[in-house]
Design a protein around this nucleic acid. Structure first.
Lengths: 223, 223, 223, 223
DNA sequence: CATGAATGAGGGTTCATTCAT
DNA sequence: CATGAATGAACCCTCATTCAT
């Protein structure tokens, strides 16, 4: 993302927090390196490797992200933001409601959204306000796509936004040891098959699903 | 296991390998423990934990499986064998051709076939003859299901057995940190959606896919 | 100590816990090395150094003492036991009651009892039953010496066992960077001066002191 | 500090060093913060913590004290100066010669003179001229007290100034993990007992001791 | 052969010290 | 000059793998 409003509060225009000339650049390099390596090799890659790939010393990483979970947090946020952006783009640029869903799904795959799955492990604080907010932003964007398609009669009505997202995450999850470029073909094939299923009229009855990711979380914890 | 050791401590046939009484039992306990823990926590669980769960000393594990990859190898074989068995059962017990495909997919999910994905990582020798053989046996069984359904006009003709299997693996892959019992509901939902898509007539044109897992592999390596 | 009843329960004569041929030797080497290095350089010496000095790999140290505090615990126990032994010897071998106190104090200095002070820092569990028991054993032994000397009119009556022990710990505490052999002369000088003060009639009025180390601890925490 | 900077931002005398306004204030804040933290937690506290407590950036600390040893050096000097001052005060304000010794000892304890012990560790240059000079000033002041008391027949004649100072350092050394306020009571108890011993006639024969701290050092190094 | 113990290489983290603004 | 950030060496600890009983 190169637009300056990507994640959250843009830099305050005047003073307030002055000296951040290259420190900010390092932080961003670290997040980028981490995202790439998390996508390639999962979130348990050695932190030293990330630092090396970012071209900084390991302690710089620790200054910015005291715990590994902090780095994961940041990468998750940034990935979610990129994916939400794709959802908004899809809504804007496709007139056909289901075409927008398709476009979003394939764009999300290209962002490697599936890499989020293994990041949700471990000590990671899933209830952090920032994360919850980003999750809701993402969900809202996708929810818009789904509802529009369903109201237009272009998509099975018994499929919730949660179904779409979880399946999307799983189908695009990186297969370890497989060259990304090669997997792409498969991933897009499977998305197409899956989406074909969503477009067609229902062939089998589905029980109710959670309506939001929050509900899913609550169910999971409650059970 | 399909070998003829059903009668446990049968008399040693000739003289080659005498003590099989509990050595064999240990080996099997280890594979079972490993499969359970790999499914629960991924294939990088500490080996000592597996030995403890199996109730043997860690060195016993190493005697049977000198490297971690050997243990993974064995677990992969055993999982594949179980899944192939499910495919054969489905073929036998369902008269409707697509119902057999459905039955197989859901049964494979219950065997946690998705746990295979993270096991294919690392130093694991994917070309080992035993593995290749088991893979072919599995593929053959599933291939039968697919062809039958397609010839009966009950399934999209442009979907290969590889599509089915890779998507099945991905959709049933364990989500870390999620209670299994809870995920089950989702996994089966998504399978149903995906299978609905396979059952319906094609809505979008798919390019050609590899016909077998071997082809997939060859493509992947070649690229 | 080479007597086999030094610390606690001697090895069970027959079976019960069989295989401990050299593991026990390693454990003891570790405690010895740790005691020496703690005395020389304080309890925050690198654990790897201790392992090297003991002639074992570092992981062996961790197997026996999962946390650094466990090693400190053990060394404290062993030091206290040695010092208590000196107190008992002094009681036996000196007929004059105050001579016994003197003998004990100087013997305790030779055991480097002052090195205990910096070990009581940090995460160390001071309420562990074993430690409390050893503390009481030590205190009891010294208490005997003090009471006997006071009842014989050979020692100031307003001095408690706690006074003696804390002052003894402090006066014999290792001075960093000072060759031990050289310090010895000073330590023993100061002990003599201090003990002379205890033997002489009181020159100044002392307020009440805690009667036991437990009391001291309780006061310290309560305040 | 005894330099003539009492009037703070006085006009720079010649031209040599202009900016002393806040640079000097920073330096002093650092030494004060360091003294407090060294006394509380020993001389190995992280230097960043000291800078934070002093309210300056860490690099400012390094500008003033390029190595940790330089900071220790300065703190030792300042502590010794304060203690020497107490010795002079005691000589002035007590008419009884031994009362002056007592007053000094207890005042030194309140200055936490015992915290000097752990500062004498490590790379610290004990032969630096400034340090040597300050040591001699301190020793001279205490020497005056001791000699006066001994000549008045109020103190054992076989006790040297070195004995007094080393024992004083040790008895007042901070016990880690113990609330300072609580220790105070004990420290003063022990000082009283020790001083009682110095006041009383000798009960045991002491061999000769070094006459000055220099002698002690020389012996220590020579051995 | 089975076992518990030993090993050492490697990852995580802290902190003294140096650099760039 | 003052500052925050950067650096790398060192320490703690885990775990795959090997050894001795």
């Amino acid at each position: 993302m190169s637009t300056s409003t990507g994640t959250a509060a843009a830099a305050p225009p005047r003073r307030a927090a002055r000296p951040r000339a290259d420190a900010l650049r390092n932080r961003e390099r670290l997040v980028t390196a981490a995202r790439e390596m998390f996508v390639e090799s999962g979130p348990q890659v050695p932190l030293d490797e990330i630092a090396r790939r970012a071209g900084v010393g390991n302690a710089t990483l620790y200054r910015n992200f005291p715990e590994r979970a902090d780095l994961v947090h940041e990468v998750v946020l940034s990935l979610m933001a990129r994916v939400a952006e794709r959802a908004r783009e899809a809504a804007e640029q496709e007139s056909d409601a289901f075409a927008a869903v398709r476009r979003f799904a394939h764009a999300a795959a290209d962002e490697r959204v599936g890499a989020l799955c293994p990041m949700l492990d471990g000590d990671f604080d899933k209830e952090h306000p920032e994360l919850r907010a980003e999750r809701e932003r993402l969900e809202e964007a996708v929810h818009g796509l789904v509802v529009r398609a369903q109201e237009a009669g272009r998509m099975r009505a018994d499929v919730s936004v949660v179904d779409l997202m979880v399946a999307l995450f799983q189908l695009t999850r990186p297969l370890p040891g497989t060259a990304c470029s090669h997997m792409d073909r498969f991933v897009h094939r499977h998305l197409r098959l899956f989406l074909d299923g969503l477009e067609a009229p229902a062939r089998s009855a589905l029980p109710g699903a959670p309506a939001t990711l929050e509900d899913l979380r609550r169910e999971a914890c409650g059970a």
